[in-house]
Design a protein around this nucleic acid. Structure first.
Lengths: 154, 154
DNA sequence: ATGGTTGCAAATTGTTTGCACAGTA
DNA sequence: TACTGTGCAAACAATTTGCAACCAT
């Protein structure tokens, strides 16, 4: 799958300057970002861009698999660049929000899922690993342990 | 842990009629529910209860571990009764929203997490299993496959 | 020319908060 | 009596949508 046609981040849509700017801004992030972040970043290249446009672009990118929702941070959804290559999950740094991809700890094709529980048939799963990236870990150990933006269940 | 004192669902709080009604309503659910659902259910026993009260009660119950957020459904958080006994996860039926507990597929104390990825140190994880409960599975197989409220990433 | 895209602002919606009053401990 | 919990409504914040102008194709 992943009918990754010629169109870079958006599935079908037209290639406009704004969309290009949004895609570029998204690519530039090395960590997860909120729509708000993306708007701010995009505006550095396309000053007058509207929030709605970014929301619509994000929806399109998510639909085409160029973006993935990796959780949420205090009322705002977190996204990360990510080409739907194959089944994988995300590591999210609770310190800075940086994300990394992680192989599925359940195995190749999600084998190992304790199915049958109460007659349930598991069809899919969702895993998010929280932790600290190298930098945040270093910062944390050399200073007094501070409160981190704890894992949000969303 | 789970300093489950005499106070049933709320940690410290006082025992009021409303809170009792809310707790009872929460207990009555066999599946995950949104705050909206809970408000509706509670109102059958305590007609005049306010939304804010329920939100506050939900927050208290979540804090005390009597309730757990198990995802979100189209803009609304999903909760489920759940006493924080030990580390576990949830099975959510994509057909009806029913939930069940599931042991952690990663093992007793989350061993098996592919840590070290990019210098990350994994401190916690979050897993939600989606699938179909016995009833929904039966309903699905005997009829034409219908679209289910697909797993929301939150 | 055609239809998707954009901006702006208004509208929605889920959730929180301020405040005066009621009820528990 | 001293607070905590409750209701109501206003406040908020994230996200969506209507609509006219705009621009790839």
């Amino acid at each position: 799958m992943a009918i990754c046609d010629n169109h870079s981040h958006f599935g079908e849509g037209r290639t406009t300057g704004q969309r290009r700017a949004i895609a570029a801004a998204a690519d530039a992030f090395g960590s997860a970002f909120t729509v708000e972040d993306l708007v701010a970043a995009t505006r550095r290249a396309a000053p007058g861009i509207g929030v709605a446009t970014v929301y619509r672009a994000v929806a399109a990118m998510e639909a085409s698999g160029a973006l993935e929702r990796v959780g949420s941070r205090e009322g705002g959804a977190l996204y990360a660049r990510c080409d739907h290559r194959e089944h994988h999950h995300h590591l999210v740094c609770t310190g800075c929000g940086k994300t990394a991809h992680a192989p599925c700890p359940l195995g190749p094709d999600a084998a190992g899922i304790p199915a049958g529980q109460d007659g349930f048939v598991v069809t899919s799963h969702e895993i998010t690993l929280y932790g600290l990236c190298r930098e945040c870990l270093a910062a944390k150990t050399e200073q007094a342990p501070r409160r981190a933006p704890g894992p949000r269940r969303d």
